[in-house]
Protein backbone atom coordinates (compact mmCIF):
# COMPACT_ATOMS: atom_id res chain seq x y z
CA UNK A 1 0.00 0.00 0.00
CA UNK A 2 1.50 3.33 -1.07
CA UNK A 3 0.52 5.07 2.16
CA UNK A 4 2.62 2.72 4.23
CA UNK A 5 5.64 3.15 1.99
CA UNK A 6 5.13 6.89 1.96
CA UNK A 7 4.92 6.96 5.72
CA UNK A 8 8.14 5.00 5.85
CA UNK A 9 9.79 7.43 3.50
CA UNK A 10 8.57 10.37 5.55
CA UNK A 11 9.97 8.71 8.63
CA UNK A 12 13.25 8.13 6.81
CA UNK A 13 13.31 11.77 5.80
CA UNK A 14 12.77 12.86 9.38
CA UNK A 15 15.44 10.52 10.62
CA UNK A 16 17.84 11.86 8.02
CA UNK A 17 16.98 15.33 9.28
CA UNK A 18 17.84 14.27 12.79
CA UNK A 19 21.13 12.90 11.52
CA UNK A 20 20.25 9.43 12.69
CA UNK A 21 20.05 7.66 9.33
CA UNK A 22 21.91 4.41 9.50
CA UNK A 23 24.94 4.44 7.26
CA UNK A 24 27.09 1.42 6.40
CA UNK A 25 30.30 1.36 8.36
CA UNK A 26 33.40 1.01 6.23
CA UNK A 27 36.57 -0.69 7.39
CA UNK A 28 38.86 2.01 5.98
CA UNK A 29 40.32 4.65 8.24
CA UNK A 30 39.21 7.44 5.90
CA UNK A 31 36.68 8.93 6.18
CA UNK A 32 35.94 8.86 9.88
CA UNK A 33 33.88 12.06 10.05
CA UNK A 34 31.59 14.06 7.76
CA UNK A 35 33.14 15.67 4.70
CA UNK A 36 32.32 19.27 3.84
CA UNK A 37 31.63 19.93 0.18
CA UNK A 38 32.22 23.62 -0.51
CA UNK A 39 29.93 25.01 -3.22
CA UNK A 40 31.13 28.44 -4.38
CA UNK A 41 27.61 29.61 -5.29
CA UNK A 42 24.34 30.14 -3.43
CA UNK A 43 21.92 27.23 -3.03
CA UNK A 44 19.63 26.59 -5.98
CA UNK A 45 21.96 27.23 -8.91
CA UNK A 46 23.07 24.57 -11.38
CA UNK A 47 26.38 23.88 -9.62
CA UNK A 48 24.58 23.56 -6.30
CA UNK A 49 22.02 21.16 -7.76
CA UNK A 50 24.77 18.95 -9.18
CA UNK A 51 26.74 19.15 -5.93
CA UNK A 52 23.73 17.94 -3.96
CA UNK A 53 23.06 15.06 -6.32
CA UNK A 54 26.70 13.93 -6.03
CA UNK A 55 26.84 14.55 -2.26
CA UNK A 56 23.87 12.26 -1.69
CA UNK A 57 25.44 9.37 -3.66
CA UNK A 58 28.92 9.90 -2.27
CA UNK A 59 27.59 9.88 1.29
CA UNK A 60 26.16 6.42 0.67
CA UNK A 61 29.43 5.22 -0.86
CA UNK A 62 31.81 6.74 1.70
CA UNK A 63 29.74 5.84 4.75
CA UNK A 64 30.04 9.40 6.02
CA UNK A 65 27.78 12.34 5.29
CA UNK A 66 29.01 14.70 2.61
CA UNK A 67 27.62 18.04 3.82
CA UNK A 68 27.02 20.76 1.23
CA UNK A 69 28.24 24.16 2.39
CA UNK A 70 27.32 27.10 0.13
CA UNK A 71 29.82 29.95 0.26
CA UNK A 72 28.86 32.02 -2.73
CA UNK A 73 30.67 35.32 -2.78
CA UNK A 74 32.88 37.35 -5.13
CA UNK A 75 32.59 35.14 -8.23
CA UNK A 76 33.39 32.08 -6.13
CA UNK A 77 36.84 33.39 -5.25
CA UNK A 78 36.24 33.61 -1.50
CA UNK A 79 35.11 29.96 -1.44
CA UNK A 80 38.19 28.98 -3.45
CA UNK A 81 40.41 30.92 -1.06
CA UNK A 82 38.77 29.12 1.86
CA UNK A 83 39.46 25.71 0.29
CA UNK A 84 43.02 26.71 -0.62
CA UNK A 85 43.82 27.38 3.04
CA UNK A 86 41.85 24.39 4.44
CA UNK A 87 43.65 21.39 5.91
CA UNK A 88 44.60 18.90 3.14
CA UNK A 89 43.05 15.98 5.05
CA UNK A 90 40.29 15.00 2.64
CA UNK A 91 37.52 16.51 4.76
CA UNK A 92 37.21 19.61 2.60
CA UNK A 93 36.05 18.92 -0.94
CA UNK A 94 35.49 21.66 -3.51
CA UNK A 95 33.13 21.55 -6.46
CA UNK A 96 34.23 24.23 -8.86
CA UNK A 97 33.36 25.36 -12.34
CA UNK A 98 34.48 27.49 -15.22
CA UNK A 99 33.93 30.66 -13.22
CA UNK A 100 36.13 29.83 -10.22
CA UNK A 101 38.85 27.99 -12.11
CA UNK A 102 39.13 29.75 -15.46
CA UNK A 103 37.41 33.15 -15.41
CA UNK A 104 37.85 34.67 -11.95
CA UNK A 105 41.61 33.96 -11.69
CA UNK A 106 42.11 35.84 -14.96
CA UNK A 107 39.86 38.72 -13.94
CA UNK A 108 40.61 39.31 -10.27
CA UNK A 109 44.09 40.64 -9.70
CA UNK A 110 44.54 40.20 -5.97
CA UNK A 111 43.69 36.58 -5.24
CA UNK A 112 45.26 35.00 -2.17
CA UNK A 113 45.91 31.71 -3.97
CA UNK A 114 47.26 30.41 -7.28
CA UNK A 115 44.43 28.64 -9.05
CA UNK A 116 46.65 26.19 -10.91
CA UNK A 117 48.75 25.07 -7.92
CA UNK A 118 46.55 25.53 -4.86
CA UNK A 119 44.22 22.65 -5.67
CA UNK A 120 44.71 18.96 -6.40
CA UNK A 121 42.37 17.73 -9.14
CA UNK A 122 40.01 14.83 -8.41
CA UNK A 123 37.67 14.48 -11.38
CA UNK A 124 35.92 16.44 -14.11
CA UNK A 125 32.32 15.47 -13.46
CA UNK A 126 30.06 17.14 -16.02
CA UNK A 127 30.00 19.48 -18.96
CA UNK A 128 27.04 21.35 -20.36
CA UNK A 129 26.76 23.35 -23.56
CA UNK A 130 25.96 27.04 -23.79
CA UNK A 131 23.58 28.25 -26.48
CA UNK A 132 22.99 31.61 -28.16
CA UNK A 133 19.37 32.50 -27.52
CA UNK A 134 17.20 35.28 -28.90
CA UNK A 135 13.72 36.71 -28.50
CA UNK A 136 11.36 35.20 -31.13
CA UNK A 137 10.74 38.64 -32.69
CA UNK A 138 14.40 39.06 -33.63
CA UNK A 139 14.80 38.91 -37.43
CA UNK A 140 17.57 36.34 -37.40
CA UNK A 141 17.29 32.56 -37.45
CA UNK A 142 20.94 31.76 -36.76
CA UNK A 143 24.18 33.37 -35.63
CA UNK A 144 25.15 34.35 -39.19
CA UNK A 145 21.88 36.22 -39.74
CA UNK A 146 22.32 37.88 -36.35
CA UNK A 147 25.80 39.05 -37.38
CA UNK A 148 24.42 40.46 -40.64
CA UNK A 149 21.54 42.18 -38.84
CA UNK A 150 23.84 43.83 -36.29
CA UNK A 151 26.29 44.88 -39.01
CA UNK A 152 23.49 46.60 -40.90
CA UNK A 153 22.49 48.46 -37.70
CA UNK A 154 25.72 49.25 -35.87
CA UNK A 155 25.28 50.34 -32.26
CA UNK A 156 21.55 49.64 -32.28
CA UNK A 157 21.63 46.22 -30.63
CA UNK A 158 22.24 45.24 -27.02
CA UNK A 159 23.05 41.88 -25.51
CA UNK A 160 22.40 40.59 -22.01
CA UNK A 161 24.77 38.67 -19.75
CA UNK A 162 24.57 37.18 -16.25
CA UNK A 163 27.17 39.71 -15.11
CA UNK A 164 30.53 41.28 -15.76
CA UNK A 165 33.22 38.67 -16.37
CA UNK A 166 30.85 35.70 -16.63
CA UNK A 167 31.07 33.09 -19.39
CA UNK A 168 28.01 34.64 -21.02
CA UNK A 169 29.68 38.06 -21.14
CA UNK A 170 33.07 36.85 -22.35
CA UNK A 171 31.59 34.45 -24.91
CA UNK A 172 29.56 37.27 -26.44
CA UNK A 173 32.59 39.55 -26.48
CA UNK A 174 34.45 36.80 -28.34
CA UNK A 175 31.59 36.46 -30.85
CA UNK A 176 31.45 40.24 -31.24
CA UNK A 177 35.18 40.39 -31.97
CA UNK A 178 35.14 37.48 -34.42
CA UNK A 179 32.18 38.88 -36.34
CA UNK A 180 33.24 42.53 -36.00
CA UNK A 181 29.98 43.65 -34.39
CA UNK A 182 29.08 46.87 -32.57
CA UNK A 183 26.77 45.87 -29.68
CA UNK A 184 26.25 47.22 -26.16
CA UNK A 185 26.76 44.90 -23.19
CA UNK A 186 23.93 45.04 -20.64
CA UNK A 187 24.97 43.10 -17.53
CA UNK A 188 22.44 41.57 -15.15
CA UNK A 189 22.77 40.14 -11.68
CA UNK A 190 22.66 36.43 -12.45
CA UNK A 191 21.38 34.40 -15.37
CA UNK A 192 17.74 34.32 -14.17
CA UNK A 193 17.15 38.07 -14.50
CA UNK A 194 19.11 38.16 -17.77
CA UNK A 195 17.03 35.35 -19.26
CA UNK A 196 13.91 37.14 -18.09
CA UNK A 197 14.96 40.25 -19.99
CA UNK A 198 15.63 38.24 -23.17
CA UNK A 199 12.19 36.62 -22.82
CA UNK A 200 10.79 40.16 -22.76
CA UNK A 201 12.95 41.11 -25.77
CA UNK A 202 15.09 43.79 -24.13
CA UNK A 203 18.00 43.07 -24.75
CA UNK A 204 17.18 40.47 -27.42
CA UNK A 205 20.14 38.05 -27.26
CA UNK A 206 22.47 36.29 -24.81
CA UNK A 207 24.46 33.10 -24.18
CA UNK A 208 22.75 30.82 -21.68
CA UNK A 209 23.05 27.25 -20.41
CA UNK A 210 21.14 24.77 -22.49
CA UNK A 211 19.06 23.25 -19.68
CA UNK A 212 17.20 26.42 -18.79
CA UNK A 213 16.27 27.31 -22.37
CA UNK A 214 14.90 24.02 -23.71
CA UNK A 215 11.45 24.45 -22.22
CA UNK A 216 10.89 28.07 -23.31
CA UNK A 217 12.38 27.25 -26.71
CA UNK A 218 9.93 24.36 -27.21
CA UNK A 219 7.09 26.69 -26.25
CA UNK A 220 8.21 29.24 -28.83
CA UNK A 221 9.09 31.92 -26.29
CA UNK A 222 12.76 31.89 -27.27
CA UNK A 223 14.75 30.78 -30.27
CA UNK A 224 18.15 29.18 -30.29
CA UNK A 225 20.58 30.62 -32.85
CA UNK A 226 23.59 28.43 -32.21
CA UNK A 227 25.18 25.90 -29.86
CA UNK A 228 28.41 27.19 -28.32
CA UNK A 229 30.06 23.79 -27.95
CA UNK A 230 32.28 21.43 -29.93
CA UNK A 231 29.36 19.40 -31.21
CA UNK A 232 25.62 19.75 -31.61
CA UNK A 233 23.37 18.87 -28.70
CA UNK A 234 21.24 15.73 -28.82
CA UNK A 235 18.44 17.86 -27.36
CA UNK A 236 18.62 20.35 -30.27
CA UNK A 237 19.88 18.27 -33.22
CA UNK A 238 18.81 20.85 -35.83
CA UNK A 239 20.70 23.77 -34.33
CA UNK A 240 24.21 24.19 -35.78
CA UNK A 241 27.17 24.91 -33.55
CA UNK A 242 28.72 28.37 -33.53
CA UNK A 243 31.83 26.95 -35.17
CA UNK A 244 29.75 25.46 -38.03
CA UNK A 245 28.49 28.99 -38.64
CA UNK A 246 32.02 30.37 -38.79
CA UNK A 247 32.45 31.68 -35.24
CA UNK A 248 34.76 29.68 -32.98
CA UNK A 249 32.96 30.40 -29.69
CA UNK A 250 32.44 27.83 -26.96
CA UNK A 251 30.72 28.75 -23.73
CA UNK A 252 30.51 25.39 -22.06
CA UNK A 253 30.03 25.21 -18.33
CA UNK A 254 31.51 22.34 -16.37
CA UNK A 255 31.82 21.08 -12.82
CA UNK A 256 34.82 19.35 -11.26
CA UNK A 257 35.95 18.16 -7.84
CA UNK A 258 39.13 19.53 -6.29
CA UNK A 259 40.78 19.21 -2.87
CA UNK A 260 43.51 21.35 -1.23
CA UNK A 261 46.84 20.80 -3.02
CA UNK A 262 48.72 18.75 -0.40
CA UNK A 263 46.00 16.12 0.09
CA UNK A 264 47.59 12.59 0.18
CA UNK A 265 47.15 10.45 -2.93
CA UNK A 266 45.27 7.55 -1.23
CA UNK A 267 42.61 10.01 -0.10
CA UNK A 268 42.35 11.56 -3.57
CA UNK A 269 42.01 8.05 -5.02
CA UNK A 270 39.26 7.21 -2.53
CA UNK A 271 37.37 10.41 -3.38
CA UNK A 272 37.89 9.83 -7.10
CA UNK A 273 36.47 6.30 -6.85
CA UNK A 274 33.53 7.58 -4.84
CA UNK A 275 32.87 10.41 -7.29
CA UNK A 276 32.77 7.92 -10.16
CA UNK A 277 30.37 5.66 -8.24
CA UNK A 278 28.14 8.68 -7.69
CA UNK A 279 28.37 9.69 -11.35
CA UNK A 280 27.73 6.24 -12.82
CA UNK A 281 24.71 5.68 -10.61
CA UNK A 282 21.61 5.06 -12.71
CA UNK A 283 19.57 7.68 -10.91
CA UNK A 284 22.35 10.26 -11.28
CA UNK A 285 22.55 9.51 -14.99
CA UNK A 286 18.81 9.99 -15.38
CA UNK A 287 18.94 13.29 -13.51
CA UNK A 288 21.89 14.55 -15.55
CA UNK A 289 20.04 13.69 -18.73
CA UNK A 290 17.03 15.65 -17.46
CA UNK A 291 19.37 18.60 -16.92
CA UNK A 292 20.90 18.22 -20.42
CA UNK A 293 24.25 17.76 -18.76
CA UNK A 294 26.90 15.36 -20.07
CA UNK A 295 28.63 13.13 -17.52
CA UNK A 296 32.41 12.87 -17.87
CA UNK A 297 34.16 11.33 -14.86
CA UNK A 298 37.77 12.02 -15.85
CA UNK A 299 40.97 10.97 -14.08
CA UNK A 300 42.79 13.56 -11.94
CA UNK A 301 45.48 13.99 -14.63
CA UNK A 302 42.87 14.59 -17.34
CA UNK A 303 41.20 17.20 -15.15
CA UNK A 304 44.53 18.96 -14.59
CA UNK A 305 45.10 19.20 -18.35
CA UNK A 306 41.51 20.29 -18.98
CA UNK A 307 41.66 23.07 -16.40
CA UNK A 308 44.98 24.31 -17.75
CA UNK A 309 43.49 24.52 -21.25
CA UNK A 310 40.34 26.32 -20.03
CA UNK A 311 42.44 28.69 -17.94
CA UNK A 312 44.64 29.59 -20.91
CA UNK A 313 41.78 29.94 -23.41
CA UNK A 314 39.73 32.26 -21.23
CA UNK A 315 42.85 34.09 -20.08
CA UNK A 316 43.64 34.80 -23.75
CA UNK A 317 40.11 36.06 -24.44
CA UNK A 318 40.10 38.21 -21.30
CA UNK A 319 43.47 39.78 -22.14
CA UNK A 320 42.47 40.31 -25.77
CA UNK A 321 39.38 42.21 -24.57
CA UNK A 322 41.36 44.13 -21.99
CA UNK A 323 38.85 43.16 -19.30
CA UNK A 324 39.77 43.22 -15.66
CA UNK A 325 38.19 43.59 -12.26
CA UNK A 326 40.52 45.67 -10.16
CA UNK A 327 39.94 44.43 -6.71
Amino acid sequence: MPLVSQLCRAAAALLALAGLSASPVHAQAYPTKPITLIVPFPAGGTTDVLARIFAERMSADLGQRVVVDNRGTAGGTSAAAFVARSAPDGYTLFISNVSTHALAPNLYKNLSYDTLTAFAPVSLMTTSAGVLIAHPSLKAADARELAALVKANPGKFNYASPGNGTGGHLGMERFRTLAGLDMVHVPFNGSGPARNAVLAGEPPVMFENIQTVLSPAQAGKLKVLGVAADKRSSKLPDVPTMAEQGFAVTVSSWTAFFVPAATPKPIIDRLHASALVALKNEDTQRRLADLSTESVGSSPAELAAFVKAEYDTWGGIIRAQGLKIDN
Binding site: A43, G44, G45, S215, R286, D290, L291
Partner: peptide
Protein backbone atom coordinates in the same frame (compact mmCIF):
# COMPACT_ATOMS: atom_id res chain seq x y z
CA UNK B 1 8.57 31.12 -17.65
CA UNK B 2 11.04 29.39 -15.34
CA UNK B 3 12.03 32.73 -13.83
CA UNK B 4 12.65 32.74 -10.09
CA UNK B 5 11.30 36.04 -8.79
CA UNK B 6 13.27 36.06 -5.54
CA UNK B 7 15.79 34.11 -3.50
CA UNK B 8 13.21 31.68 -2.17
CA UNK B 9 11.97 30.94 -5.67
CA UNK B 10 15.56 30.37 -6.79
CA UNK B 11 15.77 27.67 -4.13
CA UNK B 12 12.53 26.21 -5.46
CA UNK B 13 14.07 26.05 -8.93
CA UNK B 14 17.01 24.19 -7.42
CA UNK B 15 14.65 21.76 -5.70
CA UNK B 16 12.72 21.15 -8.90
CA UNK B 17 15.93 20.61 -10.85
CA UNK B 18 17.11 18.09 -8.28
CA UNK B 19 13.89 16.23 -8.92
CA UNK B 20 14.57 16.40 -12.65
CA UNK B 21 12.08 19.13 -13.50
CA UNK B 22 13.25 22.29 -15.20
Amino acid sequence: LGIPSNGVMALMVGAMMIHGIT
